Computed example of a mutant assay.
Amino acid sequence: MCLAVGTVASGGIGSSSGQVFTIYGDTVDRATRLEAHGKVLGTMILMDEEVASRVSKG
C-alpha cells in the first residue's frame, strides 16, 4: 500500500455499453512508483514526504 497526497483527475470513461472509473495525475504516478519500491523493499506501507509531514504534525 502506498499513501500520497496531491491533486488528481478522476472520472468515468467509456460508453453506454461499459464504463470504468479511473484516476490520473502526478500524484497517482508518484504513488505507483512508491508502490513498486515498496515491493522491492518488502514493506507493507510507504508514504510520500507530504503524508509523512502531515502525520508527524499530529
Rank of each mutant, 00 (worst) to 15 (best):
K57D: 06
I13L: 13
T32S: 14
T7N: 14
S10D: 11
G42T: 01
G25S: 12
M47N: 03
D29W: 02
G38H: 00
A36E: 12
E50F: 02
I23V: 15
L41S: 00
G12A: 07
L3E: 09
Y24S: 14
T43K: 02
D29G: 01
A31Y: 03
R54I: 04
S16A: 14
I13H: 05
V28Q: 06
V55T: 03
A4Y: 08
C2L: 10
G12W: 10
V20A: 06
L3V: 14
L41R: 01
M1P: 00
H37S: 10
G42K: 05
G18P: 00
A52E: 04
L41A: 13
S56D: 08
V28E: 04
V8T: 15
E49R: 15
L46G: 00
M1K: 03
G6S: 14
T43Q: 05
V40L: 15
L34V: 11
E35T: 01
R30H: 04
T22K: 07
G6R: 13
S15P: 07
V8Y: 09
V51N: 01
A52H: 01
S53A: 06
L46Q: 01
S17T: 03
L41T: 01
V5G: 07
D48F: 05
R30D: 10
G18Q: 05
I13C: 04
K39C: 01
R30Q: 10
I23D: 01
K57Y: 04
L41E: 15
Q19A: 09
G18C: 07
M44H: 06
G6E: 07
L3K: 08
G11C: 06
